[in-house]
Amino acid sequence: MNNIIVYLEIEDGIVGDVSLELLTKGRQLANQQKCKLEAVAAGYQLDTIGTQVFHYGVDTLYLADDKRLYPYTTLPHTSLLVNLFKEEKPQIALMGATSIGRDLGPRVSSALFSGLTADCTSLEIGSYEDKKAGKVYSDLLYQIRPAFGGNIVATIVNPDCRPQMATVREGVMKKELCDPAYKGKTKKLNLSDYVPDEDFVIEVIERHIEKSKLNLKNSHIIITGGYGVGSADNFKLLYDLANVLGGEVGASRAAVDAGFAEHERQIGQTGVTVRPKLYIACGVSGQIQHIAGMQESAMIISINSDPHAPINAIADYVITGTVEDVIPKMIKYYKKNSK
């Protein structure tokens, strides 16, 4: 009872990274709360899900395997969670802040009258004092998220309602195996006990889901271009440097909006969160929303023509100069010295 549950996102039989990241976080919270970590898989042909998730420290895996549960539609997945949560009374429920999680989460939270916080960037356990009611709550989930365009960070709690629900974007939490030999139990759910037939009202006529080509999250070296790079053409310099160093190219939102790079490359609060070994910011001013997605990089180099660009404050190396000038030199001296 009162465990932590993670809703697993499954595409083509594969559990999404965002769910594995949440399991990692969930395991950590479960250890702290001395409770179990559980996961729910709803979909079709789920035989391999257990082997995909148990070693993240899952104690119980609930399986709802039915042809009609894949592809995802709102109502059946909602009923499944709502009825399972009523039975199991988890203290915390986590899901990805993805197209699915953000469709499902609010619906479940409304049905259970349990608060939901979207897009958390950090989850912690702590206490809360309701001064008006003169009550102190311990062991609550702090749902921490940026607010107001990223200019402030708010800590949200749900003192009285369970489960405490939160969604988290992909890449925000780290994914780490717990124990390769970890073994949990599988519980098969009898679908008709949880989902009424009337829930299957949405018909998916066509569906095209692309596999992400890019793996920014897992790159050790990221070269990010901002609006200061000037053009899509100048971005080629960044690709050249990335090729030589064995890294990936990222972009700021201003660069994406200007059409210099694809949206998939956006780093920051509304893009991907990265923590590479080396982050080279080229022509990026370093607004709060960008820094939110890269501040944990082990080493940061800023190349900027403005010596007072805000990003310089968090950089290990500040190169005052233009992208056009500096990058070719980096390539040249890397080649010269790496042999």
């Binding site: 916080t117 501040q295 030199k329």
Partner: peptide, 26 residues
């Protein structure tokens, strides 16, 4: 009717690092 409560609001501050200053010279 609001199950979520705001516990705390904080301004975002990033800790500045001691950075090494370079120019574009070779």
């Amino acid at each position: 009717g609001s199950p979520t409560k705001v516990k705390q609001i904080e301004n975002v501050v990033f800790t500045a690092k001691e950075s090494k200053q370079l120019t574009a010279v070779d």
